[in-house]
Design a protein around this nucleic acid. Structure first.
Lengths: 216, 216
DNA sequence: TAATAATAAGTGAGTGCTCACTTATTATAA
DNA sequence: TTATAATAAGTGAGCACTCACTTATTATTA
């Protein structure tokens, strides 16, 4: 059921691509198998079988098994950090800024929803991060400046307003991201349900306390 | 250097066991290879070569490759949550309770130090968690009650004192653990240095803000 | 339109190789 | 000498990937 809905979303994303129906089946089967068993424990014959195609078909489009992985993770990786055109920026660049609470709730909720819709990709991604050091370095180099550029001035605004503690942006990101993950990890690993509305509410309540300027 | 010191610690832990010198070498080699390349991408012949023994010797003690993994992870898993005999409890059960800040700093610092000393095991452990669903379930079932039993009354104490917000224990654990991990993840994945003293200081500063009873 | 040609997509039985694990042989120790 | 420890040479299953060939689709011509 949960997997189905993920598949529906993935299928939808696949619609834009120039892949044939069978090649899409290959990607869908790989998505499920990689996330369930891990990349290394999934054979190309497993993939072919689940996709209902021959092994030759698998290799017609994707030259290597790694190529299949890349085809799944590339579009995912590029949407982990929402682009400058995203809602975040439009939300902020409007004449009236929302409160820090509203802003945080929006960001947290948005990313939790994203994680929910990309559950399988996230699991595969995490596996890859753990034994692909170069990938980690490359991501760090790309994502961190992007994040700071996009969010940096927003944070500054709230800091000048006195709504946000005057810590470096990196430190604030660290806490926001980790608290979001504190709700995602049980969902990803234990298959527990995740109520995004409730979770983001809770998370923001905590974050606001920790990120408000000192009353100490 | 960092790996060396880890090895020194691991070697020390190995001293108590009834393993022969060569069998200990097997475990040390496996620890490094599994953490660097992952379990699936490490062959038993790699292990034998690095340990300076034959492949037969590897299999004399450890019946399977999985058996090697278990020999590494079992003692680690059991020390992730410190036992009831640990410092935590003695710290608390003394007649004068420390402040929440002191208590938090001690816990956070202690676990960060532990992570630093068990860096390679942690990496292997994380890999395993991602595609071993049963293991995750088993850990959840064992660790969660243990954690609540040990820490539950301590939290209650601070809540009654008005130092700690009256949230369920699970929610408080969630935030403390995730903030600790926010410092560990860059250390583990990006090989960045980790100053435990400084990091725990920072972490607690944030946690105290978020976990103090509402001033809202 | 119908017939033919050209291209693309798909197949499945290989192929060489790696791997976890075994076993026959040799070194060491009691 | 006998028992134990260690080795090094297997062994067969499974793997990623290939390739000669077939089928489906599209373009071209009469």
């Amino acid at each position: 059921m949960a997997i189905n809905s993920v598949n529906v979303l993935f299928t939808h994303a696949l619609a834009d691509t120039a892949l044939s129906a069978k090649q899409k089946e290959v990607l869908k089967a790989s998505l499920v198998l990689f996330s369930e068993q891990g990349f290394d424990r999934t054979s190309t014959s497993d993939i072919a079988k689940k996709a209902g195609v021959s092994e030759g078909t698998v290799y017609k489009q994707f030259k290597t098994k790694e190529g299949i992985l890349a085809a799944i993770l590339k579009p995912f990786a590029q949407s982990v950090i929402p682009t400058a055109a995203s809602e975040f920026v439009t939300m902020i660049s409007s004449t009236s800024y929302p409160s820090l609470e509203e802003f945080l709730r929006h960001v947290v909720q948005n990313r939790m929803q994203f994680a929910k819709e990309n559950k399988l990709q996230l699991k595969i991604f995490a596996q890859e991060l753990l034994h692909n050091t170069e990938l980690v370095q490359a991501l760090e180099a790309e994502i961190k400046p992007k994040l700071i550029k996009q969010m940096g001035q927003v944070l500054e605004y709230y800091q000048k307003q006195g709504q946000l503690v005057a810590w470096p942006a990196v430190r604030i990101f660290r806490y926001v991201i980790s608290v979001v993950f504190s709700y995602l990890v049980p969902y990803l690993l234990l298959e527990l349900p995740l109520d995004v509305e409730e979770a983001s509410q809770e998370a923001v309540e905590f974050l606001l306390g920790g990120l408000s300027p000192a009353t100490k």
